Amino acid sequence: MICLNTFSQEDITQRELKEHIQFLTSDKNAGRYPGGKENRWVVKYIKNEFKRLGIKPFNGNYKQVFKAELRVDKGIEKKPIVTTCNVVGFIEGNDPVLKQEYIVLGAHYDHLGLGGPSSKSDKRGVVYHGADDNASGTSALLEIAEKLASKREQLKRSVIFIAFGAEEQGLLGSQYFVEHPTVPLSQIKLMVNLDMVGRLNAEKQVYMGGAGTFPGGVDFMNTLGKSLGLNPVVHAGSVGGSDHVSFYKKGISVLGIHTGGHPQYHTPEDTLDLINLEGEKQVCEYVFQTILQKASTTDEMHFINQD
Rank of each mutant, 00 (worst) to 15 (best):
I46S: 04
R199V: 05
P80K: 05
A68H: 03
K189R: 14
S253P: 14
L200Y: 01
H266T: 14
E168P: 09
G251P: 00
E77W: 03
L114D: 05
E10M: 12
V287P: 09
P232K: 04
K63C: 12
Y128I: 02
T182M: 13
V218E: 05
D195N: 03
S136G: 02
Y128Q: 14
K189Q: 12
V192E: 04
A236T: 01
K249D: 13
S238E: 15
D122R: 08
T25K: 09
K28S: 12
H262N: 13
V245L: 14
F90K: 15
I2A: 06
D122K: 00
L105Y: 06
G240H: 13
T259H: 00
G279M: 10
G237W: 15
E167V: 09
Y265N: 11
L224C: 12
N231V: 01
L194M: 00
F90L: 10
S118A: 12
L70H: 09
N5H: 08
I21A: 14
I12G: 06
I257A: 02
Q175V: 04
K79S: 10
Y265A: 08
P181T: 03
V192K: 03
D307M: 15
C284K: 01
L200G: 06
S227T: 07
Q289H: 13
P181E: 04
L98E: 00
G113Q: 04
E19Y: 11
E19N: 13
T290R: 07
N48F: 11
H244S: 01
S118C: 11
G89P: 03
I12T: 08
F90Y: 15
I103M: 11
N276G: 04
S26Q: 01
H244L: 06
K56Y: 00
A295N: 02
T298S: 15
I46V: 07
M1F: 10
G173D: 03
G113D: 06
S8P: 00
D307F: 15
E278P: 01
G210I: 07
W41R: 01
T298L: 15
I304Q: 02
P181G: 03
R124T: 00
L272S: 09
K147C: 11
S227L: 06
R40A: 15
N39G: 08
K56L: 10
V233L: 05
F303E: 12
G75Q: 11
E285P: 03
V245G: 09
A211F: 01
V192G: 07
H180E: 00
K51G: 07
E269S: 13
E278R: 06
T213C: 04
E168W: 07
P268A: 11
R199W: 10
G137K: 00
G279H: 07
D299N: 02
L105P: 10
G209Y: 14
V183R: 14
E69Y: 02
I91N: 05
E101Q: 04
K281R: 05
K18N: 05
V254N: 12
C85R: 11
K79Y: 11
K44F: 14
T297H: 11
G130M: 05
K47E: 15
G209I: 09
V178T: 03
